[in-house]
Amino acid sequence: NIFRAAGDLSHLISILILLNTIQKSRSIAGISLKTQILYVLVFLTRYLDLTYRYVSIYNTLMKLFFISSSIYIVYLMIYKFKNTETEQIDTFPIEYLIGGSFILSLIFNYKFQFGEILWSFSLWLESVAILPQLFMLQRTGEARTLTTHYIFALGAYRTLYIPNWIFRWISEGRVDYLAIFTGIVQTIIYSDFFYIYYHRVLKGFKFELP
C-alpha cells in the first residue's frame, strides 16, 4: 500500500541524504555516532532473519541495503572522517537504551524464541535510537539543514507506517501490536522535532532550537 511504500522510500532517502552529506562535506559534524551505532544494531538484529526467512526480492534487497549502509556510515564516522569535537558532545548513555530494549524484548515478544526476541529488541531499540542525535541537537542548539532533512526523513518512515498498519488492519485483519506500539513511541519522540522542523526548516529559517 501507499503508506508502506512511502515509508520505505523515506527510509531509503534518509540514508542517501546522510551518505551524501558526509561524502560531499567530507565531515560528520553534528551527526551522532551513537545513534548510527544503534541503527547498525537495529538492522542487524531485525534483518538477520533474511538468512532463514524469505519474503520477497524487494524485502531482501532493502534489508541488505540497510545493513550494509549503516555499517558503512559507522565506518566512515570512525575511520574516515573522525571528528573529536562532535564526539565530545555525543554523550548520551546508550547502554540504558540497549539494556532497556533488551529487557522489554524479553517481556514483550510473539514467542520466547531467539529470532522473535531479536525482532522485538530491534523494534524497541529503533523507537529510541534517535535520542542521542536529538540530544546532540539540543546541546548544540542548531544543525545543518541537511542533517535536519535526514532526521525528518528517518522519522517520517515510522510515522508513515502507522497509517500502513491501520490500512492492513482493515484490509487484512493483520495487527502487529509490537510494531504499532513501538512505532507510536518513536513518532512521539520525533514529534517535537517534527514541529520545529515544520516551523523553521520548511519556512526557510535556520534550524535553531527555541
Binding site: R4, V55, M62
Partner: peptide, 10 residues
C-alpha cells in the same frame, strides 16, 4: 497460518 506473526515489513 503460523502462530507467530509474519514479519514481512522493514
Amino acid at each position: 497460518k503460523s502462530d507467530t506473526l509474519d514479519h514481512d515489513e522493514l
